[in-house]
Amino acid sequence: MRVIDVSEITEAVAKLCIDANYDLPSDVYQALKDAYEREKSPVGKAVLSMILENAELAKQRVAPICQDCGLAVVFLEIGQDVHFTGGSLKEAIYEGVRKGYKEGYLRKSTCHPFTRANVGDNTPPVIHYDIVPGDKVRIVVAPKGGGSENMSMVTMLKPADGLEGVIETVVNRVKEAGGNPCPPIIVGVGVGGTFERSAFLAKKALLRPVGKPNPDVELAKVEREILERINKLGIGPMGWGGTVTALAVHFEMEPVHIASLPCAININCHVARHKEIII
C-alpha cells in the first residue's frame, strides 16, 4: 500500500489548471501548424496564423490562451493500492482548482444556473474517478470552454439508424454549430452504454492526442470518413469559410442496450487544453 497526502493532490491540480491554460499541448500546436499549410482560404490562413502566434504569447505568460479558462474537468485514475491521508480527496481537488484559478489569473466561469451569480472560485470542478490496478495516481485536467461545449449534444438514435445515422448526426451537428465553437474543432463521438456513458466516451475521446486513430481499424476508417465529410462543409477557421473545419474526429464505441443507440457528440475548440501528471 502507498500513502499519499491529499495536499499533494491539491498542488498537482493547481499546477495542471495553470499549465493547461497557458501551454497548448504540442500535438494540438502541430495539428494547427499542419492546418495552416493545408488551408486554402486566405481568411482561414490568417486566422490560423493568429492562433499560432497567440499560443506562443500565452506560453510566455502574457495571458491565458483564451479568456474562457473553462470549467475544470478532472479525470482521476487511482491505483487500488493507494491510500489517501490528510483529509478529503474531493475537497483537495476543489482546493487545487481554487488555488490554480486564483494564482494563475484564470477566469472563474462557474455560476448559479438561474441567478447567474458567479461562484467566484471556479468550483465545483467536474470530477471523473476511476479505480485501476497499481499504486499510482494519474490526474488529467482538461479545462472546457463554454462556446464549444454549448455546441455538443447527446441523442438517442434508433438502432435502425445504424452507423450511417450516427455519421449523419455528427456532420449535421457540426454544420449547425458553424463558427460558434471556434473552429478548427476536434470532434469527440461516443456511442455506447447508456445516455451518460456515451457522453462520457465522447468527452474522453477528446483527450486522445489529436488525430491519433482509434486502434480498431474499422473505427479508424469511420473517423476518417466523418472528418472528410466535415471538412467538405466549407465552414473553415472561425466559420468564415475554408477547407479546415475540424482537425480530427475521435470515435469511441462500446456495446449498448439491445433497444438503444445512444450517440454523443462533444465538440472541442482549437484551444484543446489538457495536462496530466502521474504521482
Binding site: 486566422v47 493568429m50 492562433i51 502566434e53 497567440n54 504569447l57 500565452a58 502574457v62 495571458a63 491565458p64 490562451i65 483564451c66 479568456q67 474562457d68 477566469r107 472563474k108 466561469s109 458567479n118 467566484g120 470552454g145 462556446g147 463558427g179 471556434c182 472561425m238 475548440c269 482549437h270 484551444v271
Partner: peptide, 26 residues
C-alpha cells in the same frame, strides 16, 4: 478570432469597469 485571448489583450491599452462590477468578468 476566438481563442486568441493573449494576442488580442495586447491590443488593449487600458481597461476600466464602468458598470455592474458585481458581475465580475461580465
Amino acid at each position: 478570432v476566438g481563442g486568441c485571448g493573449a494576442l488580442l489583450s495586447q491590443r488593449i491599452k487600458k481597461a476600466e469597469v464602468i458598470a455592474y462590477e458585481d458581475l465580475g468578468p461580465e
